[in-house]
Design a protein around this nucleic acid. Structure first.
Lengths: 346, 346
DNA sequence: TTGAAAGCGCTAACAT
DNA sequence: ATGTTAGCGCTTTCAA
């Protein structure tokens, strides 16, 4: 007696556990047990089931499993952030994915563009799919609509920025402290006119601005002359930096609020890169290759993602207790651009 | 009579369509019709249903819908690539996500690390979830195991590299032609000793190597003296470039096979960046900021992703016809590093 | 235009 | 150790 080809048994449609059961000569439940690694099945029976599954090229239907599973959460988690194409967020997404995979979860990522409507749509879609948990880099808008989901058992963790309107575990960076360190580093190099180019409308930007303010105040320096509040991208930063450099009392040093803005500032500086000191928030791969290499306040995107994902899974695995706020420290990485002195300029 | 708070109606569990139906005083099917935008429902009935759904904060269970829906495909697509943390792949993922969102689909991305086992696991998990389609940047290993899925209606599209073992739509880059252009550009600048640093084991690397070979042969130059075949990352490239530069007949120009390798080569060059010409495959954000700015053979990752995703949805929407191979052109972007002449060096 | 009934493929509770 | 039964929440037939 020869084994029939897999498709001869069941025309057209995919094999189900029932088909596997029939082929193995056991009941549906036994197949379920074997395929889920439950104990209490004779090894020979289990083997027969596995052979049957392989022969039929059985692929479990996760939708059915999710539908039935108590609590009804799929083995996926969702991540909503501003834009995966930004290397910073991409690194974070990879870290989240790694943690998820260790647990047998898949990751669905959505880019909100920091648009509250898109953010909500993404979050809704993810909830529709009954994801086990949601990791969000909030755009800043109210997230109150998540309260219901949370009550129904969806775990939500906010990363990089606090979530408005819901109380959830949060992983933050020590933004203010990081900037303060960076600016004081410039003060230490002798600078008195230190500009800040940032996007201070958003949470991280405002926190970073606060750090800038703290540092200047600690150093007894005036505050508002060299401040750019609304640099949203590299273009804006470039234009803003050009304007700053054209001032009578042009700054001798510039602090850039994030990796995009650092790029814009460096573009604006051109050959002046050897005269004007620069410190940027966020490290980036080519920082060491610039002339001079760029001093940064480094924040580890991967660590932020890992930390958030770990917290999410801790909750998923049943950890209770009050809402947590985890704050990650930053590191000043001196490479050259932040150690230039104001020499040659008044 | 006041409306009761949503949760008073149904304790604990999530509201289902049945709950919405009860509240709206209609049948389950009518709710389904309204929520799916089917025609043939009185506007007032539809409105009542929508109000009830809103009041109960009803969220549709996609698993149940997927389970029942004929063909059983979820409104998600999967993307398996080497590593989302690489800005190149991140840009591609974003482009895919954008196309998916236009169609109301979510994107689940997995990083295989080019490990065939991980790749297979990721692909399997995605199939378990009955995704509508699969976009793969194949690691190079046999993908024959996808044949069944494809037969069952899962659409698979291969991007950046051809899929081995299955016939699927494929979107490729004109790798060889791109490299040939870049190398001939260096020849045109007067170079006779042009090194190639690549990872020629993998598909794209081997194609690029072929372009290098073509160019040298067209220019009547010898081939094997300045060739590095196994540079997998920036570190390797750096070490390899150092060795090349230490040779008696050191190259006067280097072609780097991808963005990671370009970085490694630039690191190795250090101050020699103004003497040794460099052309890299892949554009990168900081290319214009280097000294000199880096000449590259640009390939548009976003276009690659978009193109693959569009093809996938075309198939999903029923387009039949033979398997397609789409080839995207590259563009040489001259910025300075590739225009350096061999002057000063023999 | 609306509804009743059947069942998608699985897991959970309860037999045996 | 194994099987039987009853659904999960939805979509699909088919009938009213």
């Amino acid at each position: 007696m020869t084994t029939l080809p897999a498709d001869s048994a069941i025309e057209g449609r995919r094999p189900t556990m029932r088909d596997v059961a029939a082929r193995a000569g056991v009941s549906l439940k036994t197949v379920s047990r074997v395929l889920n690694g439950e104990s209490g099945v004779y090894v020979e029976t289990a083997e027969r089931v596995r052979v049957a599954a392989r022969d039929l090229r059985f692929v479990r239907n996760e939708s059915a499993a999710t539908l039935k599973r108590s609590g009804q959460r799929s083995r996926s988690i969702g991540l909503v952030l501003e834009n995966v194409a930004n290397p910073y967020w991409a690194a974070l997404a990879k870290a989240v994915e790694d943690v998820a995979r260790e647990r047998g979860f898949l990751l669905t990522t959505g880019s909100s563009g920091d648009d509250p409507a898109v953010e909500r749509q993404l979050l809704d879609e993810l909830c529709n799919r009954r994801v086990g948990g949601l990791l969000v880099v909030p755009s800043g808008a109210e997230l109150g609509y998540l309260a219901d989901e949370i009550e129904h058992g969806t775990v939500v963790v906010s990363i990089d920025r606090p979530a408005a309107g819901v109380k959830v575990d949060t992983v933050l960076l020590a933004n203010a402290a990081g900037v303060r360190d960076g600016v004081l580093h410039l003060v230490g190099a002798g600078h008195h006119r230190i500009a800040f180019v940032g996007d201070t409308v958003r949470y991280t930007g405002s926190q970073r601005l606060a750090g800038y303010r703290e540092a200047l105040s600690a150093a007894g320096l005036p505050f508002d002359r060299h401040l750019v509040r609304r640099a949203h991208d590299a273009e804006h930063a470039r234009a803003a930096a050009r304007e700053l450099l054209a001032l009578d009392d042009a700054p001798t040093a510039i602090f850039a609020g994030n990796n995009l803005l650092t790029r814009g500032v460096l573009e604006a500086l051109g050959p002046q890169r050897r005269e004007i000191a620069v410190v940027g928030f966020d490290d980036f791969p080519f920082a060491t290759l610039m002339e001079p290499p760029v001093t940064v306040v480094g924040q580890d995107a991967a660590e932020l993602g890992r930390s958030g994902a770990l917290q999410l899974f801790r909750r998923l695995e049943g950890e209770s207790g009050p809402v947590q706020e985890i704050v990650l420290a930053t590191t000043l990485v001196a490479r050259g651009s932040g150690e230039l002195t104001p020499a040659g300029r008044r």
